[in-house]
Design a protein around this nucleic acid. Structure first.
Lengths: 348, 348
DNA sequence: GACCTCTCGGCAAACGATTGCAAGGCCAAA
DNA sequence: TTTGGCCTTGCAATCGTTTGCCGAGAGGTC
């Protein structure tokens, strides 16, 4: 149990001396009024430096911290930002995709840096009011939705009367809410150009085009192909979970389909394809090139390492938070479109 | 933008009629007192059914929802559970492991099912008081810590005076806090037995033994080996991130080491090893068997699919939440130890 | 018609903080 | 000694709910 890494530094963790639950309790002990305590602990207002020090020491001694809930109620804010993941018809579906969890991690860091808590909520299916309900409950000062999924209508409706809403996803025209997202059309084009440059001609696209993000990737992919090839591209509808995408890919190859170049709408789908292909004796990259999308951390340690269209998740998270906080502050801000980048690895 | 999947069902999302911010506003409009509004909307207390319906309709009409913050303040609770991930000296480190994100997703579901929000917080390194501070701020009704990491001392100190604390991790004796975790020693033994059964004799363990979870896996692994083999096992210290584990594995193989059986302390490490081995021309599973730990979703779609010691994450999340809520309710509960299971796949 | 019993809904005090306003203390200048 | 000004700190209202207590009617019975 000996700490070897980051070890305890500042002060010791110690048990409280007496039960001090509110500033009123502390005021009694200190022999001052509650306002003095408040001013001492928040640092707001003017107060004699000695008094402030004395109160702070006393608070420390009793292990007292201001109650954030009460503070927030009084200040008319919550100090928390909601992060919502729509489309969870399968438990764990979205979070199973490392892209989402990476995004979540970066959002947590970024929000923490700005003093906000991150209130996470998976959205259960079927409730049309999920977003409206969440917003109205007043639990957070703003909302970040990761992925438009097929919930465009809901986002539109809420975005029209609720301003503190930022969505990760495709950049539509005239959306009533802010978006931050990768240029999926450009990303699809990158994949197409790369497969063409590798001499691939029998092409396939694997992805679920119900979601606007994926639809844009497909569209960009097709648009960048010469017309004769474009007409022959096979579109394989596929779900996001590893199991179902693996199963679909297996079935596809087992049916005798033999494309020589595949663009997968996500890295997870890409890895499923590689794995399914291997089982059918199709060797990647010799017999078939596979290009993914996202550049999740695991893409590098896949076997073979996955060529992919990289989205800068960290930058995305930074922009999402920045935009939202500016909007909360009342600033006038615009949506952001990030440029994707092709990362060539062993799978193509 | 046409919704195809779960489509809007119940009521329409609509803008509010007038500015109704508090039950006082609504009371004025309805011509009743605030208590009546409260009773109508919460369903608590007795109220004429007709009045209740009338108030509810009016609230709906104006898009009014009770302010959760105020409600919680009054009720002396927060309605939120904190989920903390310690040891984040590398941004995104822990969340990059699908194990953590899967756990997080299941926790979110499980908590939502019990009416709690999930307040997520990555813990920044170096602050010895991180947990104490968080607990004292009163932002949540309870805390779930995912992974003991090297923070045993901190957990001990806080656990002694704060009861609503549950930790995912190793099951120590006489810990002052509740734990839910897999029997890591048994898991290590499963891996050892499996490698022995495959006829492997030149064994290696890859993992970071600073964390008690991993140390227990190593210990169980070693204990299950015959003494002569045990003495020859190579212990390769390795970090959790994909990049660093891949780099370490690469260096290890490049140095000419050629074990024929490897036990990796996590699936991510296992996949890194397979990938690094492939680069050096070591064929898995023919020349070397690899066994991972966790059974993350991706283990199935790895190439080759990864043999691994499965932890039941969903069950773990369920137990974590159940234990915490029982404890919050004042019940007397005990820590839980889950049995791991070996899942044989192509990598061994 | 008087009295009792219910049922319904209003009053007001909490929950734990923040903050505008003003009172009191202190010091220096007159 | 008086007065004015500044610095420090206290008073009390407020944020939006919940809920114990109690009064006012309604309805029933004799």
């Amino acid at each position: 149990m000996n700490a070897k890494g980051p070890s305890p530094q500042k002060s010791e963790v110690r048990p409280p001396k007496a039960e001090v639950r509110s500033i009123a309790d502390l005021a009694r002990i200190a022999g001052v009024s509650v306002s003095t305590i408040s001013r001492a602990l928040t640092g707001k207002g003017t107060l004699n430096e000695k008094t402030r020090e004395r109160v702070r020491a006393l608070a420390d001694e009793h292990g007292f911290r201001l109650n954030v809930a009460a503070q927030n109620l009084r200040l008319g804010r919550t100090g928390a930002i909601g992060v919502l993941l729509p489309l969870g018809h399968d438990r764990g579906q979205h979070l199973s995709d490392p892209f989402f969890s990476a995004m979540l991690g970066h959002l947590a860091d970024e929000l923490a840096e700005h003093g906000y808590d991150l209130l996470m909520s998976r959205v259960l299916p079927g409730r049309a009011n999920w977003l409206d309900d969440f917003v109205r409950s007043g639990r957070t000062d703003g909302v970040i939705v990761i992925g438009q999924s097929n919930q465009g209508a809901v986002l539109d409706a809420v975005g029209r009367h609720y301003r503190n809403l930022v969505v990760w996803g495709a950049h539509g025209t005239d959306l009533p809410y802010l978006t931050v997202g990768t240029d999926n059309v450009a990303g699809g084009a990158l994949a197409a150009e790369h497969l063409l440059a590798r001499g691939r001609r029998r092409l396939a696209f694997f992805g679920n085009v119900e979601a606007p993000e994926f639809a844009a990737r497909e569209q960009g992919f097709l648009a960048a192909l010469p017309p004769d090839l474009r007409a022959q591209v096979e579109i394989v509808p596929i779900q996001l979970t590893p199991e179902s995408s693996f199963a679909a890919a297996s079935a596809y190859f087992a049916a005798g389909n033999r494309p020589d170049g595949v663009f997968a709408a996500s890295d997870i789908i890409g890895m499923s394809i590689v794995s399914a292909a291997a089982e059918q004796g199709i060797v990647v990259p010799e017999a078939m090139s596979v290009v993914g999308f996202d550049d999740i951390l695991l893409a590098r340690i896949a076997t073979p390492p996955l060529t992919t269209v990289r989205q800068d998740i960290a930058e995305g998270a930074r922009r999402l938070v920045a935009l939202l906080l500016q909007r909360i502050a009342g600033a006038d801000v615009a949506s952001v479109l990030l440029e994707p980048r092709l990362v060539e690895r062993g799978s193509s």
